[in-house]
Each structure stands twice: as C-alpha cells, then as structure tokens.
Amino acid sequence: MKTVERKIKNGKLVRISVKFNGDRISDLKITGDFFMHPEESIIEFEQIFMGKKVEGLRSKIMKELVKRKIKIVCIGFDYNDVCSMVEEAWRCGE
C-alpha cells in the first residue's frame, strides 16, 4: 500500500492508502479529520475507486457519482483531492 497525506487548503487532513494492480486501483482507504455526511457513505465512496484506471480518474469518478445518484456531502475535501492523491501515489510508484 502506498500512503499519501495532504492537508487540504482551507480544508482538512486527508490520508489515503492505495494499492494498484497494474494501472488500476485495487484497494483504497481514506482516513483523516474531514467530515462526510452521511458518514457511512465513506465505504461506497471508496468502492467507487475500485478497479478504475488511474488515467482519466477524475472524470470516471464524477460520472460514477452522478450515475449512482450518490448524495454525499464532503466537508474539508472533495473527490478531486482524492483523485489527485491517488495520482500522486501512482507517480511515486506503489
């Protein structure tokens, strides 16, 4: 697992632990002092990233959020931050 930690500007601290299988995400855990409503949706939020290719990740995640009609309120970070951190982990090598 590769871990990337980031204090989001005007936001919260987010830490991701991510594992890749080839160029796809095979495992992802997001922790930190952020807020997400409802809290339990963190599981589904993480699940959305599973199996996705790193290339073009942001648009895929946005499409998936819309497709699943998921109503998640993130406070202190957003999905773009997580995508950016996954990309950073990918660039650094697993």
Binding site: R15, T31, M36, E39
Partner: peptide, 9 residues
C-alpha cells in the same frame, strides 16, 4: 478520534 480516523495512525 473522528469517525474517519485510524486509531493506529
């Protein structure tokens, strides 16, 4: 600790 934090971290 917050709901999304890891105790061990």
């Amino acid at each position: 600790i917050g709901y999304f934090q890891s105790v061990m971290d």
